[in-house]
Design a protein around this nucleic acid. Sequence first.
DNA 1: TATTTTCGCTAACAACTGTTAGTAAACAAT
DNA 2: ATTGTTTACTAACAGTTGTTAGCGAAAATA
Lengths: 194, 194
Amino acid sequence: MSKDKTIKRKDQITLIAQNKFREKGYRAVSMRELADHVGIEAASFYNHFNSKESILKEICFRMADEFFNSLEKVTHDEKLPDKILEKAIQSHIKVITSNTDASAVFFLDWRYLSEPVLSEFLELRRKYENIFRKIIKEGMDKGIFEKLDETFTVLTIFSSLNWVYEWYDPKGKFTPDQIAENLSKLILDGMRKQ
Amino acid sequence: MSKDKTIKRKDQITLIAQNKFREKGYRAVSMRELADHVGIEAASFYNHFNSKESILKEICFRMADEFFNSLEKVTHDEKLPDKILEKAIQSHIKVITSNTDASAVFFLDWRYLSEPVLSEFLELRRKYENIFRKIIKEGMDKGIFEKLDETFTVLTIFSSLNWVYEWYDPKGKFTPDQIAENLSKLILDGMRKQ
DNA sequence: TATTTTCGCTAACAACTGTTAGTAAACAAT
DNA sequence: ATTGTTTACTAACAGTTGTTAGCGAAAATA
């Protein structure tokens, strides 16, 4: 059994699906349209996926994995809350900018997941956000950040970060690191006690 | 001809459509489902709208109007760029928080508009963003804001502001004005020269 | 080489999609 | 009272949706 080839076709489908879902939105892309782009018939998908939704699930949970894995490597390196936050932002931006299509699906089309997968997804997202919340709380407790509402601050940070997939251009004037640096500056200077 | 009643039914449809589109996404709501909630048959919509898309169009362009009208009243009152920006943010947040359903449709479902309406919509959005861009540029030129990339700054501001519809709760601990105040503080302190 | 598994195809399904035609009741205007 | 208009209905359309069944060729395993 050539596991390689199976994985390759499955990955190819995921890649094309990401691209099409991003372009038109999950609900607006039919299996037949997807099939055309892959170069197979719609029915052949079911040798690789159980359903259309399971493609969406794959994309969303892969991204969740990427976010977690990338963040994990970072949070143990630094000690100071503002430095940790800076690194965490950098990690987050790196994941988004190296998967813009998947990011768009992750941020927009997760809502088309049905239960119980939907709850699973939201739980993951909550956990991830909580890591940031903890960093911020620590910064406030240690007097490095100004005492603002945590939830509010986390929401605002994520909204700035998560919008990057929309406008990031690999050929544009900002590298992912520069974007992270600018966002960190904008956000951290707004939070820091002065 | 009782124009009143016509307008009322049309408004009722728009209101329910906003709510359902927000809940499930435009493409996931069928005319029959919408009809059930209004209490009519799907075919009866066509006495009030030409198409499903024209309901979406109505919602999106109404919101655009609200944003423009609200902003216009503000920008002539103040003179200093940071004060103008503060007022503009307040105006923007006020529009979002008093139309959360419509905002969700405005920010998420506009992409399902088809040409030429889509281009019309994007042009409006561009115009609106440009007003903010001008304010920021003036602030930078006058040395009130730090010299950062304008486009980048505008994108970041809007991403924080436009996410508010997602989490704003009329019964929550923040009033729209408090949200605007906090966002202004976070953003402006990040931008201001120190 | 023989056998099993993988992966593609065609054909078809039942349900659902937005929308139109035709019609009748309710309503407003004359 | 008689128009004309608005608004709802039923029935149906043509097309699309995700998905399954059944089949054959190719590929991997033995």
